[in-house]
Design a protein around this nucleic acid. Structure first.
Lengths: 170, 170
DNA sequence: CCTAGATCGTCAGTATACTGTCAATCAACA
DNA sequence: TGTTGATTGACAGTATACTGACGATCTAGG
């Protein structure tokens, strides 16, 4: 069997590249999320941060970045915006002057309850074009791939480790 | 059968959401791309733009955005940076004063040839944690999903339409 | 106690992304 | 032909992302 000839340099190779396809899907997912949630003035990132703070009240920014695998620098401005919207508040930690603890406000807890159905509609719409069996297959492979590539990203997910400071079981 | 109880609001729901997983995979993919290609000072977006211009010499910015499904506004600065690096040049179109035609320079064509192996390594590394069969399954579903969701993104892919102006078969 | 190293939040700089708008230009039609 | 409407590139404004650095602070070791 002769070796494959070198592929010509064309845009078609890009269309079939995983990196390109993941970029497109991310953009599509954000677009659908924003459409379903346009009544709430919350971005996907802000939503994830709110959920994480709700799950782990009193978490600090660095640990929050590990829990949702977002960049620590980026998270700073995300937190500022959530605070400006009065969805969270920051309290200094008495035992460590470097740290500011994050809590949901009543507004934050309320909007979280209200936005959930819209978020679920968005997540469903993203996979809607596939058959139910295909959706399960895709999600299974995706969860696997993200997990196995965890260390390849700048901010690996540290769902367990990050919570030890809270004195709660991981 | 009793209806499912409402899921509690926790971060675990986010970990299993397609939107979150696609975001993570996009970040992982970019990270791997930049690592493999760090010798070349090219981002994934800049690479895709170069390939597209190489495939369709004399394309204009608006059509380029349709060919790679990138935002037209964003593409402006991408083009500026590629021009600053002397990888592309822009020539005014004689028959339409609004349009600037895009062409690769010799530098641009050269770096494209050189970077290809690194890009292919990156794309391979993204899927490496999966078994070969799983890779094929995932990519098949991903291509399908991106295609079927094409209209959901702000900038749908218009690979064929965009090229009519060039007088070449799509 | 005191210093070396680690960590925290923050900032500057760069690069995607998207929304909306604008002037210049072009195309189509009355 | 003259005006309307669409298109093009550009811009302002906002929001992620990542790199690298910084002062303030904490921790460990001597």
């Amino acid at each position: 069997m002769p070796s494959k000839p070198a592929a010509p340099i064309t845009i078609d190779a890009v269309y079939a590249a995983p990196g390109y396809l993941f970029r497109r899907m991310q953009q599509i997912a954000v677009s659908i999320f924003m459409e379903e949630c346009k009544a709430f003035d919350l971005t996907p990132v802000q939503y994830a941060a709110l959920i994480a703070i709700h799950t782990h009240p009193g978490i600090d920014a660095t640990r929050l970045s590990a829990v949702i695998a977002f960049d620590r620098s980026t998270l700073g401005s995300v937190i500022e915006r959530l605070q400006a919207k009065d969805y969270i508040e920051r309290k200094p930690a008495p035992e460590d002057k470097r740290i500011k603890l994050l809590y949901l406000t009543k507004s934050g807890a309320a909007i979280l309850r209200e936005i959930i159905p819209a978020v679920e509609r968005a997540q469903a719409r993203i996979l809607e074009p596939l058959k139910p069996t295909e959706r399960k297959t895709l999600m299974g492979l995706l969860v696997q791939l993200v997990d196995l590539n965890n260390e390849a990203s700048r901010v690996p997910l540290r769902a367990e480790d990050a919570l030890e400071h809270l004195g709660k079981a991981g």
